[in-house]
Write a protein that binds this DNA or RNA. Structure first.
Lengths: 234, 234
DNA sequence: TGGGATTTGTTCGTATGTATT
DNA sequence: GAATACATACGAACAAATCCC
């Protein structure tokens, strides 16, 4: 019957899931945005049932907040959740590089090198470069063949986009391309310890480079307290 | 209005989710078992819709396999997935103990001590002791206040039950109580390095103690090949 | 505070797909 | 290999909760 793959069965709901996920990661839907079942279904040409299923999935992945009787919104992690998330990411990604050190096949090395070149080429395009930087990490995870590890790294990388969208400095290049190259070099050389430390440092840099509260994110109290002190008040 | 929490809204589906999860973890539903929406809904007094929602959640958590047009079954991880899962667990739980070392409050120490005593008291009851052993790990994770870390550890501990149900030796005490005590001691002493190594070793022990294929789990081919060799065949 | 509009929660019917004889 | 039985996929409609004026 030459049935097109993905045009039937639970595949439709997964299509909705992918569409929403993409929209969120592209920041077409920004953190906090309402996600009404009706309008989404209308826009995507499916009924609310499928939208609900996708929203449940996304909420399990931490990209969407689901509150009973209140509906869904794009997740809006706090700054502290953000920091904690990067700690968790680091723990998992250390395992990734320790697993991979000295075990990369020529094919894999080629893939990673090409990716880094692509990152370098896209340095100017902010959105693209953010996406590619994330993909480097998921690419590495993929190569471990460890299903749960892959799944969690994917999830955390995706959520990292949300965090950076909320708290990242506008023009911080969030993953320095050179750091990816060093990481790859140490993996090829089979230096697990070094790779592990580089990964830790790499993710740490992201948090300190990008995650410190921006000037304009300070709340009114912090801002005023400075003036208060200057005036000998409070 | 004195509305009972959990008797309305999305709570109903979460109740189904919890019921199924519990049944799976208690091995009332063993790995591979079919999970027909109809019969489950009938048994639990809800419609298929809510069952579906719960099944989607469970599949995201890795406790249930969901195949399009084929329905749901209790997940049946392979032995290799099992080993990989414990590697991932170790990476995360190292972060847990590193975070906690030297930072436990008296309250938390009391809670953990009491838990270990309970484990010791329940040593004879196989099912209970397995449950308590898992809870020790989730209890530790909880104390980190790191949401993503907590979530993943919970998930992996739950899935570990499936693995042990499938591949665990019948009477291996899966978590030696003494190891939990040592772990706690090192946490109180603030020895992060030691705690990390103990945790690694502890989870490693589980895999080697329990996860090596049992004699009667060898498949028919392996068994026969031995006989074939003995008879000069094949 | 109230009441109508909107959105979510849930059920159930029908179509479609899978397994079995 | 077709017919039958059964389970899943999806959507429309109704009920309940929330929001907004």
């Amino acid at each position: 019957m030459a049935k097109t793959v993905g045009d039937s069965g639970r595949g439709r709901s997964q299509a909705v899931h992918r569409a929403l996920k993409r929209a969120i990661l592209d920041q077409a839907l920004s953190p906090g945005a309402k996600l009404p079942e009706d309008s989404i279904g209308e826009r995507l040409g499916v009924s609310r049932t499928l939208v609900r299923e996708a929203l449940v999935r996304l909420s399990e992945e931490g990209l969407v907040d689901l509150r009973p009787n209140k509906g869904a919104t794009v997740a809006r992690p706090t700054l502290e959740e953000g920091r904690n998330l990067f700690l968790t990411r680091a723990a998992l990604e250390r395992l990734v590089v320790e697993t991979l050190a000295g075990k990369l096949t020529p094919d894999q090395i080629e893939t990673l090198s090409a990716h880094i070149q692509a990152e370098d080429a896209a340095k100017k395009e902010h959105a693209t470069s953010i996406r590619l930087a994330g993909e480097f990490h998921t690419l590495l995870a993929q190569m471990t063949n460890n299903a749960s590890l892959i799944r969690y790294v994917n999830e955390l990388v995706a959520r990292s986009s949300l965090i950076l969208a909320l708290y990242g400095r506008p023009h911080s290049s969030d993953c320095a391309v050179s750091e990816h190259q060093e990481l790859l070099d140490s993996l090829i050389a089979g230096k697990a310890e070094v790779a592990s430390k580089l990964m830790t440092h790499h993710l740490d840099s992201i948090t300190t480079r990008a995650l410190l509260p921006r000037e304009d994110d300070r709340n009114i109290k912090d801002v005023l307290s400075a003036y208060a002190a200057a005036e000998g008040l409070a």
